[in-house]
Write a protein that binds this DNA or RNA. Structure first.
Lengths: 237, 237
DNA sequence: TGACAAAATATGTGCATACATATTACTGTT
DNA sequence: AACAGTAATATGTATGCACATATTTTGTCA
């Protein structure tokens, strides 16, 4: 029957991706080389073009190959290391390691943002916003310190939230979904005040995560999170 | 009129994703809620189930919804912030900012790895490996310092490469593709020697990138890269 | 030779259908 | 009521087809 040997080697698109990946690793398709057309690969491997497309798109998403509309597919000469991080909520990050999570509001007030914060949030001029500074604890020891600004224009309800009980981050995630998010990782020396809060010494190298979220073009919040020495973000690509 | 109005509002899967995303943002599908079945959405939106599937899978990949085989699709109550970073080769990172790239080998020798490195590479015991320490420069100023170990068992040819001319990283990328890669970001205070090399002061907060690559289960290389203050890694999720 | 229009081509997308697979829900038995 | 086996169900995957779209290549004309 016309059945294209389904029974013997029923390959899924994941298997196809693996086969092609192997060919790249083994040098059969060396860096910079052009791969066969999807249609040819499909015939060669005994499957439909759509299945090859699925596998190839996965390889392209992983940064291994490059696909262009008429140029065909090429093995990237200099594959970029593409890594995906899931930035967890502090509570879950702590609890994932089996420690007890704690939260503590350090300060809360409503003031004018500095120019730097307004700029980071894409505003032309500073605005009055809610500023919340808080500590996340793991087994009662400082885990991360966050200094957060929340737009009163976009999230007016935030003034009525009891931030001594609930982390602003968790409240926002539950009540104000965002459509855009920027992230920035860097390192900084701890100031005296930061060291005091994090239980380390001034000058210690802190891991810095800066995050901004928007709903459409309206800024929601902008946080600078500081983690004491020992903190690391890791992933497998 | 069984024709599913193709002419008027021919929606692509990206448009569908956007529509569903909007519904989530607007609260039509609140956090934790179950979404309609793919088939129902398809009928409601006037397209094929495959198209809905494509959109929904994209939303799931972005960490916005969760899909289970019979449980249907749910809006994630606590959406994780999922960010994808492309870790560039130093040369390209420098040149992307319009600066002149420079490279300088600081040291090269073949010695036994410390236990820590052997462990990081998944080896039971230390091995003799090639260690290459090098500086990447931007406009003749230190941009990043790397301390790298390369497995002689996996990459014996590396001993014949002139590392004073070519960065080990670029040689490896061109000649030794990897199948697995681990990444770890952290912060550390500069030692005297590191500060000297990077042109900063001892104690300054450095951004640390640790990376390991393997081909199958064979370790290829393991690097610790240090960037001076001012360096940051950023992305848009 | 050079510029511009037209044809060719490889990937991208959409659709309809069939079947696979993982879970949930149900049902009958003890 | 507890349990195991079975049916129901929503998503996952594969296929064949047609057409869309972005590039490259080719061809024509000045």
């Amino acid at each position: 029957m016309s059945a294209p040997d389904k029974g013997s080697d029923r390959q899924g698109w994941r298997a196809l991706r693996e086969i092609i990946h192997e060919r790249i690793l083994s040098g059969a398709y060396p860096p910079g080389a052009r791969l066969p057309r999807d249609a040819d690969l499909a015939e060669q491997l005994g499957c439909a073009r759509a299945t090859v497309q699925r596998a190839m798109r996965a390889l392209a998403d992983d940064g291994l190959i490059e696909r262009k509309r008429k140029g065909g597919s090429r093995v990237l000469a200099r594959p970029v290391t593409r890594a995906t991080f899931d930035i967890p909520v502090a509570r879950e990050e702590v609890e994932a390691t089996g420690r007890a999570y704690g939260y503590q509001l350090v300060a809360r007030d409503i003031t004018q943002t500095p120019h730097s914060v307004a700029a980071a949030m894409g505003l032309a001029a500073p605005e009055r916003m809610l500023r919340a500074q808080a500590l996340h604890l793991a087994d009662r020891r400082p885990f991360m310190y966050e200094d957060r600004w929340i737009s009163l224009a976009t999230v007016p309800e935030i003034v009525d939230v009891d931030l001594t009980r609930e982390s602003a981050n968790e409240w926002l995630l539950a009540h104000r979904p965002y459509s855009r998010c920027t992230l920035r990782f860097s390192a900084a020396n701890a100031t005296d005040a930061q060291a005091e809060l994090l239980g380390t010494r001034a000058g210690d190298a802190l891991f810095v995560i800066e995050r901004g979220t928007w709903l459409g073009s309206a800024p929601i919040t902008c946080v600078t999170a500081l983690a004491p020495p020992g903190y690391a973000l890791s992933t497998e690509a």
